[in-house]
Design a binder for these strands. Structure first.
Lengths: 226, 226
DNA sequence: AGGAGTTTGTGAACGGGAGAACAAAACGGA
DNA sequence: TCCGTTTTGTTCTCCCGTTCACAAACTCCT
């Protein structure tokens, strides 16, 4: 066990581990719904699609929540991970850009079930104004500051076209938003203290295409032995 | 320069580099549209949001396409990267699950502009049958095999609910699809020779929440110095 | 033609993550 | 109570990726 102050939990969880915690959380939720009350690291690792040694090491950063010879209590571990990630609390979120993707995000149930509450949908296009999406009225982008202030929003989602993304990000930062999830296919620059994560749908396809190309490249005909 | 057979390009491009090539490609396209004909590794690195040394090392895996003292020819480099990724060719794609997300994907122009051509939209729900989305008629899931065969589809996109994802994946694999982009929030298992990439929208938000929680956690009041 | 300035391509050091392997600890049965 | 079995928590080693730093190479100016 690494040295640790008594008042707080361990401080230095590796980034790679943080990225996997939500996967473990999801797997535990599924196990819980199936009525499983206890599971071993091996079972959970299979459910999460990772190596069991890696799983145990990841969990060890949170503390010793397992019992040797027995395994982990599903509910207890699930709560501990949820608390560590921060999804036991309520996170108000604004979505900017209510095109196809923005609408899909607004309707995505996976957000609300994990503590993310969409408090407003914003769009710069006046034609979209007053449309109702996922039970919320689409409001003008100019309302951003008021909304962020009223609901203490810390997280913003950008689902606009690429050209608008940097401007939206600047406005978000100016309003006090400190975490941004960017779906626009462009690099946005923000101050150091602001976190940005990007999701680019076409990049994932391109990575697949690269490997796909190399699968067929080596073979002269369509019949591949491997 | 690493040793390399004369007949083919280098074989071992690191996975981390492959994941960045599409970002470089996008940055180069933007530069090209702005009328820039030449750029240095520093300029391109800024546009792509990476370190310039990393960029140069990444590009060096493809070959020596730059000119010392000058930089890179935007058009030439763009073509070379596109060819390496494989987006100079046409990739037929099927999308399964035409809910909100599936519709957003079907309408996403970023796919078509990079060589990904959606040849069919499939959904198991008979109520969605014959709906027209993005100019394509939604067809029954049972048509998968016929479509994959007719259009030589190698890449499939799963945008179904989690419970259906594994079954869809199995059927895709059985039809001969060898690359899968999975948007369903669940782990799917496939044979080794099949590539799967996953995009989980809520996981990205959870990672942001973790960091957000720790930003505010240390500070007793709302006023944070950093 | 030659030298100063610029930028690429790469060798080398460094840091972090992945996985194997094992010691520590809990349970169960005799 | 004591021993065998199971499974966690952790150490150790290896490998991949990142970054620094510099030599090689090209341009431009005199």
């Amino acid at each position: 066990m690494t040295a640790r102050t008594s008042s707080e939990t361990a401080r230095d969880i590796p980034e790679a581990t943080v990225a996997r915690l939500p996967v473990y959380l999801r797997a535990l939720t599924t196990l819980s719904e199936q009525g499983t009350s206890t599971c071993s690291s091996e079972e959970l690792a299979v459910a999460a699609g990772v190596n069991s040694a890696k799983l145990r090491k990841d969990l060890s950063y949170l503390g010793s929540y397992g019992t040797r010879g027995v395994g982990y209590d599903v509910e207890y571990l699930r709560y501990q991970i949820a608390r560590e990630i921060g999804v036991t609390q309520d996170w108000p979120v604004v979505i900017v850009g209510i095109g196809n993707l923005g609408q899909a995000l607004a309707n995505y149930s996976g957000f609300r079930s994990r503590g993310f509450r969409t408090v407003a949908l914003l769009d710069a296009d006046p034609a979209r104004r007053d449309e109702v999406v996922a039970g919320l009225v689409v409001r003008p982008f100019a309302d951003l500051e008021q909304i962020v202030h009223d609901h203490a929003v810390a997280i913003g989602v950008i689902a606009t076209p690429a050209v608008a993304a940097q401007d939206v990000a600047d406005r978000m930062v100016a309003c006090g938003i400190t975490s941004i999830l960017n779906f626009a296919p462009t690099v946005i620059s923000v101050p150091d203290q602001v976190d940005v994560r990007k999701v680019d749908l076409s990049i994932e396809l391109q990575i697949l295409a690269y490997h796909e190309q190399r699968k067929t490249q080596g073979a002269p005909s369509q019949e591949v032995g491997a």
